[in-house]
Simulated assay, not measured.
Amino acid sequence: MSRHHYIQTAQNKVYQKTIPLLKIKRNILAALAYFDMFDYPLTYGEIFLFLENKYCQSDFNDAVNCLISSSTIFQFDKFYSLKNDPNIATRRNKGNAKAAELINKARDVGRLLIKFPYVRGVGISGSLSKCYADDKSDIDLFIITEKNRLWIARTIMHCFKKLTFLINKQHHYCMNYYIDEQQLQIVEKNIYTAIEIDTLIPLEGDTVFEQFYAANVWTRGLLPNRTLRLSTAKPLRKHLIKSWIESLFNNRTGNWLDDTLMKITANRWHKKTLMKKLNMRGTVMGMAASKHCAKPDPVNFQTRLINRYQYKLNSLFHETEDKIAQ
């Protein structure tokens, strides 16, 4: 082999390694950028889990070290962030401790709510599912119901929630996302919903959550390193009162009632949206209501968040282009 050919071969190998390394760096920055919108730094393992592609551990480690040495990302104890601010790690530690307390309360809430008619699964969603909370945090809950009985279940549960205002416990019962067994797949398929699905903490209904994850395997295309775990979900148990109430509506009357409650609720929420009423977070109140789903209107928060994330990524890649190419 000539000296020229040897040098050219070596250069090609370096070039081939540089391209994947650049891609890994971009993946790392993308993962950190998403959670940076919530001032939430990630651990080494969490960054790896939220990468959009699979990489070997050694290449991932090299990319992280390169980003740190170029001051593109910053490390504070076990956390990594785009911000050069040690207070962000302190904030996360406090938030994790607060979340541990709320998750214990959420388990009690789940044990209660699973006894309601037509409820088949209860899980923790929102910031609490990422193990973060502060003094203003709610317990956001993800509810799976029997097929074609979502609106009966939701109405009964929200009537109960009205009572929790009397004892100032309404923040423990934020049941804001419902789907039923007929349509377990989440319609919106994007990085936001993928992260929300893969960070859910199932509390009750192990079987229905297995079916839910099976219906949403598409998330692996966006988060291939995530492993879905069901260890926290308890099996569904029979409750006499629950079974008795369900038997009263497992007929045509139940079909009519479910449809009627859906129409009444959807109309009421539509009026709130037209009046531009704001929720506690300052977002216009809106609900996406269908036969098999009741959830916050994606346009009000989800779409805006994704647009904000994309803008942040474009700016970040432009600002760090020279650094990450090294």
Rank of each mutant, 00 (worst) to 15 (best):
S127N: 04
D134W: 11
D140M: 03
K115V: 01
F160R: 09
G121M: 08
N176W: 03
Y177G: 02
A153T: 11
Q170D: 14
A133L: 00
M175I: 10
S129L: 03
L141K: 07
A133R: 09
L150E: 12
T164A: 05
K136E: 13
K162W: 09
I144D: 02
S127C: 01
V122D: 01
W151C: 04
P117C: 09
S137Q: 04
W151E: 04
L166R: 09
K169W: 14
G121C: 08
K115I: 01
N176K: 10
Q170F: 14
S129V: 03
R120S: 09
Y132E: 05
L113K: 02
E146L: 09
G126D: 02
Y177Q: 05
L166Q: 11
I144S: 07
A153I: 13
T145N: 13
C174I: 12
I179Y: 01
D134I: 12
K115Y: 00
Y178R: 08
I179S: 05
I114K: 00
K115D: 02
K130G: 01
C174L: 12
C159N: 15
F142A: 07
G126E: 00
C159L: 15
K147L: 00
S125V: 04
V122E: 02
Y118R: 10
G126W: 00
R149L: 03
I156V: 14
F116Y: 07
A133C: 06
T145F: 12
F160G: 00
Q170C: 07
C131S: 12
I144Q: 07
T155C: 03
G126Q: 04
Y132S: 02
S125H: 00
K130S: 02
K161Q: 12
G126V: 04
C159G: 11
I156G: 05
F142N: 08
I124N: 10
V119L: 14
Y132G: 01
I139T: 04
E146S: 15
Y118M: 08
I167G: 07
L150R: 11
T155M: 02
N148E: 15
I144K: 10
F116N: 08
L166W: 14
H171E: 15
K115A: 00
C131T: 10
I124D: 11
K161V: 12
T164F: 08
C131M: 11
P117Y: 09
H171A: 13
L150Y: 14
Y178S: 07
I156C: 01
H172F: 13
K169H: 14
C159I: 10
Y178M: 06
H172A: 12
D135F: 09
D140K: 09
D135A: 11
A153W: 15
I124M: 10
I179H: 05
L128Q: 04
D134H: 11
P117E: 03
Y132P: 01
F142H: 04
S125P: 01
Y178F: 15
M157C: 15
K115F: 02
L128K: 07
F165E: 07
H171M: 14
Y177L: 03
E146G: 10
Y178G: 03
N176S: 12
D134K: 05
